[in-house]
Design a protein around this nucleic acid. Structure first.
Lengths: 152, 152
DNA sequence: ATTTATGCAAATCGTTTGCAAACCT
DNA sequence: AGGTTTGCAAACGATTTGCATAAAT
């Protein structure tokens, strides 16, 4: 349930730096702050949550920086039926492939993982299906929808 | 790739009728039209697509009716990173459990299924994980993100 | 007749954008 | 300097809502 970083904060910064550079973008103070917040929190955050965690950030800049960070492959945007988008570090940055538990009552989103064996089985099954359709898979998304512990 | 209805149009109408009734809602002309369009098309439709398919429908009424139909369990709303929500018939109405291929380029959404064996394996693995977290599963959602045939 | 659904137009609200000042190198 | 980023305020656009009319029972 913690972020369980398999990547050190320093490595993370360096990798974020690199990825931004490869898209001709700078790793500015505000962007650092965002990466730091997302890293520390270790779960998908909404805009209000980000602004609360970084009170000096201007909302418009956060939106703009999240777009940049997403294009650089540092951040991933998650859309649910909830009113807000959520943002988390790209999973190949944290080395932590996972999925989401989405509460249909309060909108909360948590991470979870499935056993490696199931994951790889699923992965190959999906690839077969996609190929048959001429679909080029970039990633998959597996969410569980239901009621979280708090919402009973 | 077709809708492959395992449920006849008549059965569908009757069931929609029933479900609406159980939430104290009527099966009005406009709602019939929506169900008919979704049934005929057999894939998730956006608001513009719905309005094009039913030129006499008022946009606000469509939005309102989709809410009602969703509450009655007749329709399911799908949110992607695309600008529009999409709507399809609830899968327990069509008897056709499926997932989605989401094109990250054009936003198009197609249905696909995975082998029953994989599906049930996944299902039990998910249930175990959820239980450990005190999470009550209502449904799962498995999307493949990538480039569709047309977008190469 | 009374309740509910409809359609138009206006309001909402998360997100995006224009622009001038601040920042970086 | 020369370019980018920032923050404020205004704009956008998908969805929602108020209200008067039309259906439905």
């Amino acid at each position: 349930m913690s972020a369980a970083p398999t990547v050190s904060p320093a490595d993370l910064e360096r990798e974020a730096q690199t990825r931004l550079g490869s898209v001709d973008q700078r790793f500015t103070r505000n962007r650092r702050t965002l990466v730091e917040i997302l890293s520390r929190t270790g779960r998908p955050l909404t805009m209000p949550e980000l602004l609360e965690a970084g009170p000096d950030l201007a909302q418009s800049s956060v939106y703009r920086n999240l777009v940049v960070l997403e294009q650089a492959g540092v951040v991933r945007r998650i859309v649910t039926n909830d009113e807000f988008s959520r943002y988390e570090l790209a999973e190949d940055l944290t080395g932590h492939h996972h999925h989401h538990l989405v509460c249909t009552s309060c909108g909360a989103v948590e991470d979870f993982t499935v056993p490696e064996k199931i994951e790889s089985l699923l992965d190959s099954a999906l690839r077969v299906t996609a190929d048959q359709r001429g679909f080029t898979v970039e990633s998959h998304r597996l969410d569980l929808l239901g009621r979280c512990d708090a919402c009973g």
